[in-house]
Simulated assay, not measured.
Amino acid sequence: MPQWPARLLETDPGDPLAALTSPPAHRLPGLLANSAANHLYAVALDAPLDRLRAAWTVAGQLATWAESTCTAAEGALAGGQPNEVLERWATGMVFPVDRSFLTIGLSEPEPTLDQQVRTALSVLIMVGAINTVLRVTDDDGLTTMRLLSPPFLLPLLEVD
């Protein structure tokens, strides 16, 4: 299974850590330059409207997806019948993207608008990092990402 951050560090001919160490392009007055809120603000200002809308949709689907995924996995475990859903859930536990989305979805079963906005912007940050890696990966990496990504995330990923 690819380790996406390590792959980025190994294959990026530029400075892959620049986004982590550089101040964000836009700042909110009164906040420290390296505040996470500034990075979220910069993402919100710089993202095209269709990407913001897609990330908002993803953020709105997380709770339902997480609940149904876990319920199906618990049912398979209780019945002693391993199946595709259980395999998918187990794979998701070792793949950081799925695990992050499961954690968010389960911890915010009925997200407030504020939570959904933060989640949508976080989705854009994660997708941006993943897409940076996908641009330099081989066909095997693209296939792996298609298989491991939650279905609602695929429209935002550059896996074609």
Rank of each mutant, 00 (worst) to 15 (best):
Leu8Gln: 09
Glu10Arg: 11
Glu10Met: 10
Glu10Leu: 13
Pro13Trp: 06
Pro13Gln: 07
Asp15Asn: 15
Asp15Trp: 11
Pro16Asp: 12
Ala18Thr: 13
Thr21Gln: 07
Ser22Arg: 13
Ser22Lys: 07
Pro23Asp: 01
Pro24Cys: 02
Ala25Trp: 00
His26Tyr: 14
Arg27Leu: 14
Gly30His: 11
Leu32Arg: 15
Ala37Phe: 08
Ala37Tyr: 05
Asn38Ile: 02
Leu40Thr: 00
Tyr41Lys: 03
Ala42Phe: 06
Ala42Thr: 14
Val43Ile: 15
Ala44Gln: 12
Leu49Asp: 13
Leu49Trp: 05
Asp50Met: 04
Ala54Thr: 09
Ala55Asn: 03
Trp56Thr: 12
Thr57Pro: 00
Ala59His: 09
Ala59Lys: 07
Gly60Ser: 12
Trp65Gly: 02
Ala66Pro: 01
Glu67Val: 11
Ser68Ala: 10
Ser68His: 07
Ala72Asp: 03
Ala73Pro: 00
Glu74Gln: 09
Glu74Val: 09
Ala76Gly: 04
Leu77Val: 15
Ala78Asn: 12
Ala78His: 09
Ala78Gly: 13
Ala78Glu: 12
Gly79Ser: 14
Gly79Met: 07
Gly80Leu: 08
Gln81Ser: 15
Pro82Asp: 08
Pro82Thr: 09
Glu84Val: 09
Glu84Tyr: 02
Leu86Ala: 05
Arg88His: 03
Trp89Thr: 04
Trp89Cys: 10
Val94His: 08
Phe95Lys: 00
Phe95Ile: 00
Phe95Asn: 06
Phe101Glu: 11
Leu102Cys: 06
Leu102Pro: 04
Leu102Met: 12
Thr103Asn: 05
Thr103Met: 11
Ile104Ser: 00
Ile104Asn: 00
Ile104Cys: 01
Ser107Gly: 09
Glu108Phe: 06
Pro109Cys: 05
Glu110Val: 09
Thr112Gln: 05
Leu113Arg: 14
Gln116Trp: 08
Gln116Met: 13
Val117Gln: 15
Arg118Phe: 11
Ala120Cys: 07
Val123Gly: 02
Ile125Val: 13
Ile130Tyr: 02
Asn131Ser: 02
Thr132Tyr: 03
Leu134Lys: 04
Arg135Lys: 12
Val136Cys: 02
Asp138Ile: 06
Gly141Leu: 08
Gly141Ala: 10
Met145His: 03
Met145Trp: 04
Arg146Tyr: 03
Leu147Ser: 13
